[in-house]
Design a protein around this nucleic acid. Sequence first.
RNA 1: GCGGGGGUACCCGAGCGGUCAAAGGGGCAGGGCUUAGGACCCUGUGGCGCAGGCCUUCGAGCGUUCAAAUCGCUCCCCCCGCACCA
Length: 942
Amino acid sequence: MPSFHNAYINFSHMTPMVDFTAIEQKWQQRWYEERLYEGRRGGDKKFFIHFAYPGISGYLHVGHMRGFAYADMIARYKRMTGHAVCFPAGFHASGLPAVSLAKKVERRDPAVLQYLRENGCPEEVIANLADPAEVVRYFSQVYVDDYWKRFGFFIDYTRLTDTVSPGYRRFIQWQFHKLREKELLTKKPHFAPFCPQCGPVAVDKSETDISEGGDAEVLEFTVIKFTMDDMVLPAATLRPETVFGVTNMWVHPDVEYVVAEVGNERWIISEEGLRKMASQMEGEIRAVDTVKGSQLVGKTCTDPLVNREIPVLPATFADPGVATGIVMSVPAHAPYDYVALREAAPDIEPLVIINVEGYQVPAREVVEEMGIRRQEEHEALEEATRRVYKEEFHRGVLNRRCGEYAGTAVAEIKDAVKNALLEAGQAAVLREFSLPVICRCGSPVVIKRVPHQWFIRYSDSTLTETSKEHVQSMHIFPEEYRQELPKVLDWFGDRACIRQGSWLGTEFPFEEGWIIEPISDSTLYPAYYVVAKYVNQGRIQPGDMSLDFFDYVFLGRGAPADPLWEEARQDFLYWYPVDINLGGKEHKTVHFPVFVMNHVAVMEPRHWPQGIFVHWWITQQSGEKISKSKGGAVPIPDAARRYGVDTMRLYYAHIGAPFVDIEWDGDTAATYRKRLVRLWHLAQELLEAGGEEAGDVDDWLTAVGGRAVNEVRGAMEEYELRRAANIIFFDLPNHLQWYQRRGGQHRATVRRLLRTWLTMMTPFTPHLAEELWEKMGERRLVSQQAFPEPQKVDEHILQREQLLVDTLQDVQEILSVTSLDPSTIYIYTAPPWKWEVAETASRLAENGTLSMGGLMKQVMEDENMRRQGKAVPAFVQKLLPEVQRGTMYRRIDEYGHLSNAREFLERELGAQVRVFRADEQAPDPGNKKDQAVPLRPAIYAE
RNA sequence: GCGGGGGUACCCGAGCGGUCAAAGGGGCAGGGCUUAGGACCCUGUGGCGCAGGCCUUCGAGCGUUCAAAUCGCUCCCCCCGCACCA
């Protein structure tokens, strides 16, 4: 990331005026000494927030801090608004990542060693990291010290836990007992990605378990058994419905196929195909002979469904590495087959079995249109296949050649044909990755049948429906996810919940040798944070945490065997339910649904979660998720040092809505830093204000501050952190600057505003806020201040200052358009009668009875008005559309305010300014007086 | 395919029926000040305007409405998830 390095210029030769690092250390020390972070019961307002704990896979980077920072800002805000807050955190240590890191350290993998060193891992620690338990221990410490505490988070550090600690394991075993009691565990066969060396692995884009192939999909081939003498020629296809249109078979002439015993059948299949079948089928399969492809060419076989005799032909595109290596040919609908058949046997006619409007023989027409000549043109043929398939799938209908399926749409038929073939024993299923998948250990990953796999029955209809219903009442952010989650719950099927192998995790209580997999052991865990505190304090031993213990603490069942049980029960009753579970968008279809469903399944309804907050990612500049391998990982301590912790916090809060991906850019972080420096100096300047006399601007500053408080509170209550930060760090400072520009310097007003401002800053940039707070002479911590209460705001004061701003702008626009350099500027404020008309119009608009006629009638009742003559209808005509557009007129003292600001205007405009009432005797050299209307004084410059 | 999200001025990003030529930041330009740390302050940054105005714009095209960046439909383009990864 070159820009990151460019962004940083070394200032060490200068004396920094704001030493962020020193300020951070100073206040963190005080906070942590005073244990402000600890969640203690108290009062009737409580708030329980946690984030989806991070997996332990090594060092984290700036992207990960986004969500943690959100959680801390919310937690701090809640603290300052009178809530008892519990904000615990933990570490997800289960699964492969820690083990895999340890393995690499053990074999001294150079890339991993370099990565550890670059992140500042001491040599003596590296030596220990060959032990997975040490990986967990060490990185837990790194996350706490170098990330969370370094960023000033008020996480409850007394409740830290990890998912492989003995206590946690007891908890998970209890959870599985509960699931079993509810009959939510079941056992059935399963097909899983499997490494012959490592056992089951996860195939996903983050490539946690694998080194290649994270994008692979699992394709489900239907293997149709064509018979050839006493043998089976198993043709694999993704489109079983096309079996009606087969004209021939393809084999590769140069490939050595094997003859294998499959049950009581003898199959001809490629060697790779045999291996795949073997790992996925029941019973033993073994090769007994071989046969060259060319030896098969010229024979015939029988299509099982239509019982038709067809020839075996040679084709070089028949890849032995794909599925069974035997391909059935459907030339009318498969471009590959069409092209190959044209070469091999031009006399065979394609059999059209799917009617698509606009096509006769779809494959032929697409191939001809694209000008494809040879079966080696793979790219073009792939494209042609996609096109044909797309058309046929959406618009195709099976024709009379398809027997009982004639007349059905392709989109609806696929599974029917497959199932019929399977039931008749004329087909099998073969699953295969769409791309090569390689395990971290280097072996190719296959799909393996696990005969007796335990599942959690998330498909259970009661569980699904109850969960969906409960979700309706939850606070879910963003709104889009609130609508999506019920659909995810519907889609969520049974989940394999245990696996074998050398993984970290909890032993499955109902079958030896199996370990609960890492998603299934992290669904109910916020409850465990309640207990974790006691474990950490040594007040209860994991061995004493029996099923009865958890039953009592979490469900109120049975009787306490120890006073501590009762204490824990009371804690649980106080803190639960979870108010916010916060996590990245990667959790939308994995963690959050099971988080909800497990609570629904196990806990009492009153303890089901109340809220979910989903945030998007910080990506690399390419838009990719940041990853170590792609070089985009900025270490967190580096970022803290370079930009400052408060800068980073503000960056996260303000760079974009939580619900968009943000591209990391060091330059941008640097501008936030600059912003904070500027605010620092602004605050310093304001502290020096020593004025005794308050004026108009002071009233305005108070009003504008009050409005900011109300808006920030409104935003924070909805967790709109960006909007709040925008007001605090951008709008309000701009107002303060305007105040200065207006000459404001009243000591008491400024200090009052500063107190409010710093207090509101605290959730976002707590260190800076503390430091400035102290400079104001405050002794207590701003972190312990109450957030400013909602305030009454005098709209008139805001409006009259707005009048000044608008008027100044109007003058400037006039000057810029006319290129005048005036010596005198005349300003005329609207006469009272125009205000009266405007106010009357506004009142009528509020009642919804505004009309030209009605307004004129009412206005003209007044003798004063009648005296104005035809000026009244002229004004009303101009005014009406303005009011209809929604402008509300409430009288302000325009003349008084502008007169008071006369000196300011003269300073700004560099000319003499004369303010008059339009209705009084006054010089009017430009003849502009009559143009004065409410909120729009007439202006003349000369 | 199923499910979800997007396309806003030079860039990032607000806005999601009127107060919108569209916040805020960045960049760029002009001016001021002379240096708060990559300075700071003011002004400008769609076009046209010698009086505060007018015209054209928010992926494209229709439409609803007195009124649309905002609502509906169609189309184009981009992104994400789809399951033993937290």
